[in-house]
Computed example of a mutant assay.
Amino acid sequence: MSSVANWSYTATATVWKTLGYSESGDNLGYSAPIPILCDYEGGLSKRIGSIGAEIVAKNTIWTEYADAVTGDYILIGVSADPDPLNAGADEVMQVIRYADTFDRIADDFAIITGV
Rank of each mutant, 00 (worst) to 15 (best):
D90Y: 14
D83F: 08
I111S: 01
A53R: 14
F102W: 11
D39M: 09
L85F: 00
I76E: 00
N59P: 05
A32P: 08
T12K: 15
C38W: 03
V95E: 09
D100S: 11
D72N: 07
Y30Q: 07
A53S: 15
S31C: 09
G88A: 03
A80F: 03
D100R: 12
I48F: 13
Y98G: 14
V92I: 14
S45P: 01
G71Y: 04
G49E: 14
Y40N: 08
A66Q: 14
D108S: 03
A80D: 06
S22L: 10
L44P: 00
E41M: 09
M93G: 15
G49A: 09
I61N: 02
S8W: 06
T18A: 03
G42C: 06
W62E: 11
G114H: 01
P84N: 00
R47L: 11
A110T: 00
I51K: 12
D39S: 13
P82H: 00
T113G: 00
S24Q: 13
P82I: 01
M93P: 02
T60K: 15
R47A: 08
W7A: 02
S45G: 10
L28F: 04
S3G: 08
E64P: 02
I61W: 05
C38A: 09
E64K: 10
K46P: 00
A87M: 04
N59S: 15
N6G: 04
L37G: 06
G88N: 05
W7K: 10
G88M: 05
C38M: 14
A53G: 14
I61T: 04
Y65Q: 11
Y98I: 06
R104K: 12
D81S: 03
D83N: 10
A87E: 06
T60V: 13
D108A: 02
T60S: 15
T18E: 01
E41S: 09
A5V: 01
G20W: 10
D72I: 03
T113E: 02
A68I: 05
E91Q: 12
T18K: 02
V56W: 10
T12E: 11
N6K: 09
D81E: 04
P35S: 09
T14F: 05
P35R: 06
D90P: 06
K58T: 12
G29E: 12
I61Y: 08
I76H: 03
D107L: 04
P82T: 03
I34A: 03
V4N: 07
R47E: 09
T63N: 15
N59Y: 14
P82M: 02
S31W: 06
D108G: 02
D90N: 12
A106Q: 13
R97E: 15
G20Q: 06
A53K: 15
A89Y: 01
S2G: 09
G77D: 00
A13H: 00
T101N: 14
N27K: 05
K58G: 10
G71R: 03
N59L: 13
V92K: 15
V15L: 04
T18Q: 11
A53V: 08
A87N: 07
S22T: 13
P35L: 04
D100I: 08
T10N: 15
M1G: 10
I76T: 02
I105F: 11
V15I: 07
G43A: 10
A5L: 03
T10I: 09
A5T: 06
Y40L: 05
D103N: 15
W16T: 01
K58Y: 13
A68D: 08
D81L: 00
A80G: 06
A13L: 03
